[in-house]
Design a protein around this nucleic acid. Structure first.
Length: 478
RNA sequence: GGCCCCAUCGUCUAGAGGCCUAGGACGCGGCCCUCUCAAGGCCGAAACGGGGAUUCGAAUUCCCCUGGGGCCA
């Protein structure tokens, strides 16, 4: 993906040229491009030239460069470095099948390589439309790729078949289009995924045919899914969208991506974009593909969410509002009042969040009129009449707390426990269940203050009735 | 199928001949702290794919195999 290219150019102080490679027309739409650019921007990845901002060597969309490719294909044909091939896909497929059946490697037969003008005319007359094939030179030394990440890699030219550079409809193939683009855009360093390594010798051959200097290349390790298969482009791109929608922070994503294949010398894992750029060294990039570990990403997001909480709590509030909306616990048009309420909630439980949606597991009760009692929690903390009585007492105590604030609330709870001759926690736990329906969540006193007297008293009442019905099991647990 | 790349805990990785009893991080388990959970602190389980070779000595170099991935089809 564009990520390492960005890191590399920013570190080296070069120009990052973004190009839309949409020769694979089946899945290329303007909307698709716009979405990708938007995601990159959201991640904080910036470029100096590209389809949206233009630049001196544009246009930056391959579909807008069709003429350029045709011109250059013509040059190769003129030089004899490429030739029209009239073989039909079905014929090629048949040859391939035959090769497989006879257990020998499939090579292009070269049938059209030395077609005479008369032979070509015959094919044309038969209504065949030609693709263009690149003629791999017969006697050529080893093709050496001196990769910035992988080191020296050699390919034997005789292993390369004459390959197609232009489809019969005149559209260019990826490999060819890239060579033309990279040269005409004066690209000095090609940085791309490792899956393109095998294309490199073919591209070098084309550079030679044109008489162009070869740029440096760097192949970064691929990102793998949990199945160890390479994350497809589509897959990876939609992933960013999904993480964004789930409330992941872009800085967490960027930090996480950086660690996929590259580690700073001192082993630190959390660093800012600035640090990342200054410390990034292409020679430290690993060679093996890395599996995307969603759990670690989530952990890292927690780290950044905590930082955001300290620095810009309103940003966390915004994220939490989105999560609540998504869960249907907040109106679509959360007004300032509701936001202020969410802010209070975030203030007392923000440190528990790794993802905005964690608000649902720790604090959904702040946003429900009817809270949901976790049966297990009820069974564990409610002891029939005794609990009901205790809740009633606390209700009365809380009813008299003025102002309804932390200190008074805590005193009321602890005094109730003392009056009952039990430990504070023996009151706190059942009360938490009574007010929230669960055994996990923010501190009880804080939560009571945020909930407010009215709701607290109502929930205590309701819980007392529930507790009464909850007869302790005779299982000897206590 | 041919060619190419890769190979350390489940995952991301440190390690560039002795510093390795293989280190860190996420995750996992335990303990502590504590009103619960989370966080935090401490502790723990967990890896050099296999076989040769070089060397006084190999995770580290070389070869083969195996496995995974990719490109071309």
């Amino acid at each position: 993906m564009a990520f390492f290219t960005w890191l590399f150019t920013r570190h080296e102080g070069g120009q990052f040229v973004l190009r839309t490679e949409d020769t694979d027309r089946t899945r290329s739409t303007e909307a698709f491009e716009a979405a990708i650019l938007e995601d990159l921007r959201w991640l904080g990845i910036s470029w100096d030239e590209g389809p949206d901002v233009g630049g001196p060597v544009g246009p930056y969309r391959q579909t807008e460069r069709a003429g350029l490719y045709r011109e250059h294909a013509a040059i190769l044909v003129e030089r004899g470095a490429a030739y029209p091939c009239y073989c039909l896909p079905e014929e090629l497929e048949a040859e391939r099948q035959r090769a497989a059946a006879e257990h020998r490697p499939f090579r292009y037969s070269g049938r059209c390589r030395d077609l005479t003008p008369a032979g070509r005319a015959e094919m044309e007359a038969a209504g065949r439309r030609a693709t263009l094939r690149f003629r791999v030179p017969a006697a050529h030394g080893p093709l050496v790729v001196d990769d910035l990440v992988l080191g020296r890699v050699e390919f034997a030219p005789e292993d390369l078949d004459d390959f197609i550079i232009q489809r019969s409809d005149g559209s260019p193939l990826y490999n060819f289009a890239n060579v033309v683009d990279d040269h005409t855009m004066r690209i000095t360093h090609i940085t791309r995924g490792a899956e393109h390594l095998s294309n490199t010798p073919r591209q070098f051959l084309m550079y030679e045919a044109f008489g162009w200097a070869q740029p440096r290349v760097a192949h970064f390790p691929s990102l793998l899914g949990v199945d160890r298969k390479k994350l497809s482009k589509r897959h990876g791109d939609t992933a960013v969208r999904e993480y964004k929608a789930q409330g992941y922070l872009p800085e967490a994503l960027v930090n996480f991506f950086a660690l996929m294949g590259w580690y700073p010398e001192d082993g630190r894992e959390i660093f800012s974009v600035e640090e990342m750029i200054t410390r990034f060294r292409i020679e430290d990039v690993g060679k093996s593909g890395a599996v995307f570990d969603a759990q670690k990403l989530t952990w890292m997001n927690g780290v950044y969410l905590q930082e955001a909480l300290r620095r810009t709590p309103e940003r966390v509030v915004e994220l939490v509002v989105e999560a609540l909306r998504g869960a249907g616990l907040l109106d679509g048009d959360a007004g300032p009042e509701q936001r202020a309420y969410v802010a209070r909630v975030v203030a007392i439980m923000g440190e528990r969040l790794r993802l905005p949606k964690d608000v649902l597991t720790y604090g959904d009760f702040f946003f429900r009129d009817e809270i949901v009692y976790d049966p297990q929690a009820v069974r564990k903390q409610f002891r029939g009449q005794a609990t009901a009585a205790m809740l009633g007492r606390l209700r009365d105590a809380l009813g008299g707390v003025v102002p309804f604030e932390l200190a008074g609330i805590e005193k009321a709870v602890r005094d109730t426990a003392a009056a009952l001759g039990v430990e504070s926690k023996d009151v706190i736990h059942p009360v938490r269940v009574a007010l929230t329906g669960k055994t996990v969540g923010p501190g009880l006193f804080e939560l009571i203050a945020v909930l407010g007297r009215e709701r607290v008293l109502a929930r205590l009442d309701r819980a007392a009735r529930l507790a009464q019905e909850t007869v302790p099991h005779g299982d000897g647990a206590r």
